[in-house]
């Protein structure tokens, strides 16, 4: 396994040219052709991604502006997507609030405690199963559990819970990988100093795994942000009303039947259409001459968020690694 690290994959992999001369002209030609084709695949993917980014950048030009990002949707004009963006962010925060602790704790078990036994393999099987279940089936599960059985109706909370159980395996696996990447010597040293296993995990392993954990969190967040099929049946499909962020008049912690709980943008018990779901809604039922522009604008914002999440994960991971290893 150790042989795979390093730069062996590059050009120097081939033997010296003198040795190659033995091979026939035909196989050399095939080799050249293969090299060209394989390079072609790389270029193709980059070109495709470039084209998509350029396409949306061009489409969003003149559409995406501060007022588009912040204002309410309009029936007649270009309007904005403020409430939808808010719902996406709120949904993401709520989902991650549940998924991060459970995912990291699960990752700790899988990396530090799990032995080779039937329960571990059952957990692994469950992990792989949820990852492979279609998102629409998870959405339907959310529909029947949260919307129908719990009688919540369409709520942000129901959507966030459905998203959590859909993304928990990913979060757990990424956490496990991050924790496993911490060198074994660190654990040995800590235990040798008399620390308990949990103290070792808490004060030695977890801090060292932070860069990896953050990467995991951001990658999961990127997936949550773009998901639509899960939310179609759980969190609602509509144009949100105007959100009043100062609405705390009827707030009550004990009585969740007050208007606050069903209308305030801060409440998890209200319907919340997200940006991705809004794209789906607009492309199917949107009215007006601006529909295409609005969808392009939404898509451009989603793609930029994906870019930010990905680049952010890399950058932050790199900075933290440097800091922690330097310290």
């Amino acid at each position: 396994m150790t042989a795979t690290t390093g730069r062996v994959a590059g050009g120097p992999l081939g033997p010296k040219p003198s040795l190659r001369r033995k091979t026939s002209r035909g196989s050399l030609l095939a080799d050249r052709a293969a090299t060209v084709v394989l390079w072609g695949t790389g270029v193709f993917v980059l070109a495709l991604l470039g084209a998509i980014i350029v396409h949306f950048a061009a489409a969003a030009w003149g559409v995406v502006s501060p007022s588009f990002v912040l204002s309410d949707p309009s029936d007649t004009g270009l309007g904005g997507i403020g409430p939808l963006l808010w719902n996406s962010i709120y949904m993401l925060a709520l989902t991650m609030l549940i998924a991060i602790p459970v995912g990291i704790l699960g990752g700790i078990y899988m990396s530090e405690y799990a032995g080779e036994n039937p329960i571990t393999s059952a957990i692994r099987f469950a992990e792989e199963s949820i990852s492979s279940v279609p998102s629409i089936v998870v959405g339907l599960f959310g529909l029947i559990l949260f919307v129908d059985n719990f009688k919540w109706g369409f709520t942000v909370l129901g959507g966030a819970l459905a998203l959590t159980l859909f993304n928990l395996p990913l979060m757990t696996r990424l956490s496990e990988q991050a924790l496993r990447a911490v060198p074994q010597e660190e654990r040995t040293a800590s235990l040798a100093l008399g620390a308990t296993k949990w103290q070792t995990i808490r004060h030695v392993v977890l801090p060292l795994a932070i860069p990896g954990l953050i990467t995991g969190v951001i990658l999961t967040a990127g997936r949550v942000f773009g998901e639509a099929a899960v939310l179609l049946f759980t969190a609602g499909l509509g144009t949100p009303p105007h959100y009043d962020f100062t609405n705390f008049k009827t707030f009550s912690l004990t009585d969740t039947n007050t208007a606050w709980w069903h209308s305030s943008p801060w409440s998890p018990l209200r319907p919340g259409t997200t940006l991705s779901v809004y794209i789906y809604k607009l492309q199917s039922e949107g009215l007006g001459v601006y529909v295409n522009q609005i969808v392009d604008g939404c898509a451009a914002i989603l793609i930029s968020m994906v870019l930010i999440f990905n680049l952010g994960a890399r950058l932050l991971g790199r900075i933290l690694t440097r800091r922690l290893t330097a310290a």
């Binding site: 998509i52 997936r223 773009g226 991705s276 794209i279 898509a299 989603l302 994906v306 990905n310 680049l311």
Partner: peptide, 25 residues
């Protein structure tokens, strides 16, 4: 097998971005 280090450093993040592009997009 083929890509030099710099090419891999570009294509791999690009693939991750592909994964992240939402299905509705």
């Amino acid at each position: 097998e083929v890509a030099p280090r710099w090419a891999r450093a570009i294509v791999q993040p690009a693939l991750e971005i592909f994964v992240g592009i939402p299905s509705v997009v």
